[in-house]
Design a protein around this nucleic acid. Sequence first.
DNA 1: CCATAAGCGAGACGGTACGTCACGTCTTGTA
DNA 2: TACAAGACGTGACGTACCGTCTCGCTTATGG
Lengths: 208, 208, 208, 208
Amino acid sequence: MEPPTPHKRTGRPRSAEADRAILGATREALVELGWGKLTLSDVAARAGVAKTTLYRRWAGKNELVVDAIAALFEEQLDLPDLGSLQADIRGVVLRFAGLLDHPAIRTGLMAVVAEATHDDALRLRIREAIVDRQKHLVLLGRARAQSRGEIPPDDTDPALTARDADLIFDVIAGSVVHRVMVSATPVDDDWADRLALLLVLGLSGVRR
Amino acid sequence: MEPPTPHKRTGRPRSAEADRAILGATREALVELGWGKLTLSDVAARAGVAKTTLYRRWAGKNELVVDAIAALFEEQLDLPDLGSLQADIRGVVLRFAGLLDHPAIRTGLMAVVAEATHDDALRLRIREAIVDRQKHLVLLGRARAQSRGEIPPDDTDPALTARDADLIFDVIAGSVVHRVMVSATPVDDDWADRLALLLVLGLSGVRR
Amino acid sequence: MEPPTPHKRTGRPRSAEADRAILGATREALVELGWGKLTLSDVAARAGVAKTTLYRRWAGKNELVVDAIAALFEEQLDLPDLGSLQADIRGVVLRFAGLLDHPAIRTGLMAVVAEATHDDALRLRIREAIVDRQKHLVLLGRARAQSRGEIPPDDTDPALTARDADLIFDVIAGSVVHRVMVSATPVDDDWADRLALLLVLGLSGVRR
Amino acid sequence: MEPPTPHKRTGRPRSAEADRAILGATREALVELGWGKLTLSDVAARAGVAKTTLYRRWAGKNELVVDAIAALFEEQLDLPDLGSLQADIRGVVLRFAGLLDHPAIRTGLMAVVAEATHDDALRLRIREAIVDRQKHLVLLGRARAQSRGEIPPDDTDPALTARDADLIFDVIAGSVVHRVMVSATPVDDDWADRLALLLVLGLSGVRR
DNA sequence: CCATAAGCGAGACGGTACGTCACGTCTTGTA
DNA sequence: TACAAGACGTGACGTACCGTCTCGCTTATGG
């Protein structure tokens, strides 16, 4: 969440307060207006900040929204120990779905992902700011399950380990997003249950 | 693909050639520029058509882009019988990933999905034009697996049946989309294999 | 005064009304605000016209102000026959000074001349729009004086003729401008009288 | 040239070097960019000085540029005795035109004059720093001509005397400036000759 | 068979937001 | 206290697209 464009040592330092206000105003505007109607002028006005201050820190709408959303992910997603692998998966699914319940997050996230299909720098930024930070949840869940004896200990080959984590991550995140965005059906306890069960059963043998 | 706004009989008829040129130009521009930078003036120029001609047929950017993308999904996917449930899943995963390999489809699909997050009519249109056409594959695959004896016959409750099909559909489609769009890693044979295995194992017990 | 950038035959024609409104608004704003505070956005607003319409016709503030002032010169400067060469000169001096009495014209004219010292295109535009159109007054005045027998008929060499006209023009215009701008003393009847007398006497022998 | 805003004794003294660098950079930028495009940030950068240093000494663009230009007019013009009134006039015309040959003087002088049209303090400053210093040449020239017997001795009324000197000054200076700035034609020997002749002849009778 | 009614290209129009620039002020750390 | 550096709020800039609106012209049908 710190300013993405760091600066030299000299001169007046950038206001950290401004950063906070801007990201907050961005989320607020995103909720009220949605991606399409959100304008940087409006964000600046809401944050009580000059437009130039905003452009000094972010290159454009995409970058700003990525950071604004990333901050939400940061604070919203964690993985409380619910006692079993299935319960842990169920928990993270519901939590993720809860995030996507905010219309602004839903819209903003999809919009930047869409833009990222033809903007590699943007895709990289999304990866760093949002995706990679959540992937550790998968690793954490697996470690817990191993310590509980629910799944066998790690492969000796770390490449295989990472490969499997990536698969699980794509399945969990992708399923939830597709459910919410495309099927446009809410993620309820029952659905989360069944997805968690599917994964727990499947995981038992996915390693070859 | 015919003009969505039909017109009276009299006067000079609308040029069908223009419709084709506009939709083609839209897809082309979408790939090059993405949703955000795509402008209707540019589309008109590419199509060799006046802006008025374009606005006579479509109400705005959303409608135009959805139509342009929907045309790409006209033909239904099919599901050749590959001998086992796992092979069938693997097949449909690779086939779907193949679709997303086209830049026009990748960019366009994400763009309209993003837009649909705050446009219910648009979401409905996507459902009808794109999603529902593919969902029958899940049902077909299950029927085959049942006839092979790989999974037990249908629940007596058709609601439960539909519920499960929806889950599978969200998992398959969502995982592939997330892999391609967010993780930005190609879907290869190995990944498809592992996803199919995960599902086959998981399906054995997901029914309660 | 017609649009400086002519256009093709096709498409919607430019509004002549807009041109009139813009030039009028420019003069009005020039009077109220002066050159420095005059903004094109404000001019557009006064004229009830979009900023784009303004930029479609003029490249910038300088060009616009030149045209706005030129129109004033056009309508204000003429040369009524006052019966003698001295009276005619006196008349044009007072008339020119009257123009420079408007603070906005004074400011605007000097500002564009100052800018023109390092902008050849602008200098050319000033020449064409303002200076050259007034120079004919010198020729007209001379012709009248010759027909009255106050000065001898033209040289047979037209180059010499033009050379002399240029000298007279620089002296009259320059003296008035210097009096008003630099000496900051009003041009009154007495001063005009004495300048006219100086010139009439001087002209009697300036030709060699 | 000393800092117009004097300061207290205590603390670090202001750098005289900075003053020189700033005024030099201002003249340089004025020639390159003209009044309109000249920016104080740019001047500061050229002078290797911070903007604060600049604003500590001058209140704004106007004040800075006037000081920068005034320094060029420090040394007074003189008037060598060339043997006749006409030759003396010719000499001062060429000398003044020579001054306007420097691009910095040409541009800067016009710029401050333009600015002075709506800034009385600025006009006063120009009068004191530039104009009045040159006006004594007119008086000197007249005295010489009188001692040569070329023109009659002074009026008994000193007001009339000053009045005539002002007229001559406006005519000479104004004509040269108009020739150089507006007509954008160089002042050559021939033009100076003819202007001087015009004045000598005219002066013979301008007194009433 | 030609009048009517639309379609069409071109491009101007009133808007709105953009992203940039310079202004003049301020807040740092260093001299 | 001066100074270099540079962030800050402000406000105009000139541009880009939006969706609408004339224009003058073309192309089908139907009275």
